Computed example of a mutant assay.
Amino acid sequence: MKAGYLKAPFQFELRDVSLRELKKGEVLVRVKACGFCGHDAILARYAAEDWEPFGHEFSGVIEKTGEEVEHIKVGDKVVIETSTFNPLAECSLNGRPDWDLNGPSFMEMKDPSMGFAEYAIVPAELCVKFDGLSFEEACIMEPLGVAADLVMTADLHLNDDVLVLGLGPIGLMALKMAKSSGARKIYAAEFSDATARCEMAKQYGADEIIYTDQVKLEDYPFEKGGVDKVLVTAPPKTIGSAVNVANVGGTIAFLGISYGPDAIVSFDSNKVHLNKLQIRGSNAIPALYFPKCIDMLKAGLVDTKDLISHVFLLENMVEGLHQYIEDREHALKAVMVVP
């Protein structure tokens, strides 16, 4: 079978690999669609020092089941959670399964294939059945769950003024959910050359677009002097600016990831203290909201079809990914499909 591999800087290749036999509680998924994640892009840009398989935003069909798999069967359409919680962990038994960071995880499988492949081995408990959606729509369930976690972490209220900092797919979906949650006004911040992202932000309900390569965020004339909630999906270094534009009592929720020196953030602690701000990390490990996200997609609260800007076959993966990465103006979301 074919499986995609990547290595920094921006090297991709298809390999012929063989998969092992299924263990108890595992299933073999025939991959139908897989999204290229922002974390995949970080790996491809600089973090993957050696070749590794990639892709965790995927949907497919159950091809085979291992022993003791009961809730899904061969032929079921499923979308894959990146991780889930251990119900017997102390935090889970104390009512906080969201604090269990060590539950079953697809990212820790260390098999020769992941989502960019024809087949992948997955713990059965990470498979969520779905219907009424295309495989391409469903594969964006994982980042939709990340966006949902961010919005709930921010604890949006009616009449909040909201700034979405970073307009990748997660930021855009969070923006759409903020609009549905009753935000009074939504500001969206991105570089001016990301034309498609900025246009999609307007389509999703952004009232004003802030081009951060043209105006300093702190100098922008916010109607209320600042904002009540900031949703940060940009690199963590932008948290300092988020602190500077938050109103008294404001909340900054963030999920951006960087490595090395870029992971270190500085901000004015006096502003946090005196203005009673809260800085909250959003981490969708374990994944918790897939059924909710399926319902949102079916109800039209978020339409992931709008976000798919580049589609290519697995056999054309190398060319397809390079075209997506180099198309800054039009790029929203790249999805690989397997017929």
Rank of each mutant, 00 (worst) to 15 (best):
L28F: 02
P143E: 02
C139T: 02
P53Q: 12
H71M: 07
A33V: 07
E81S: 09
K202V: 09
E70V: 05
F36C: 12
P9N: 10
A148V: 15
L307K: 09
T84K: 00
D303T: 12
A48L: 09
E118P: 14
N283T: 08
A206D: 05
G260C: 05
R30T: 02
V318F: 03
V335G: 06
F135W: 14
G256M: 03
V335S: 03
G182R: 05
A47N: 11
A48G: 14
C293H: 10
S92C: 10
F267H: 01
S59A: 14
E108K: 14
L274P: 04
V311Y: 00
G225M: 12
P143A: 05
A196L: 05
A196H: 01
G4C: 08
P123M: 08
T233D: 02
K237D: 04
G250Q: 02
D207V: 09
K64W: 03
M109I: 06
F54K: 02
S18A: 11
T65R: 12
D100L: 00
I285R: 12
A299W: 08
A178T: 05
V232H: 06
V128Y: 12
K271T: 03
L332F: 07
Y46M: 14
W51E: 11
R45Q: 10
C34V: 06
S92T: 09
T212G: 13
L301S: 08
V146N: 15
V78D: 00
V162E: 04
G145A: 00
A174S: 13
I62Q: 01
I294Y: 06
P339C: 11
M107C: 05
M114S: 07
E118V: 14
S258Y: 05
M114N: 15
M296G: 09
A41V: 05
E13N: 13
L307A: 11
F135G: 08
T238C: 03
K24A: 09
Q323A: 07
C139R: 02
S180I: 07
L150E: 05
S134D: 06
D262R: 08
A174K: 01
V61K: 08
D161Q: 09
F290L: 01
C37A: 01
P104D: 04
K224N: 15
E118I: 13
A242C: 06
V146P: 04
P169G: 14
F10W: 11
P235L: 13
M296S: 03
L133H: 15
E315P: 02
V164Y: 00
K224L: 13
P53D: 04
G260E: 04
A194Y: 14
A117P: 10
L165T: 06
L231W: 06
K216W: 13
D327M: 13
C293S: 12
M109F: 03
K224G: 08
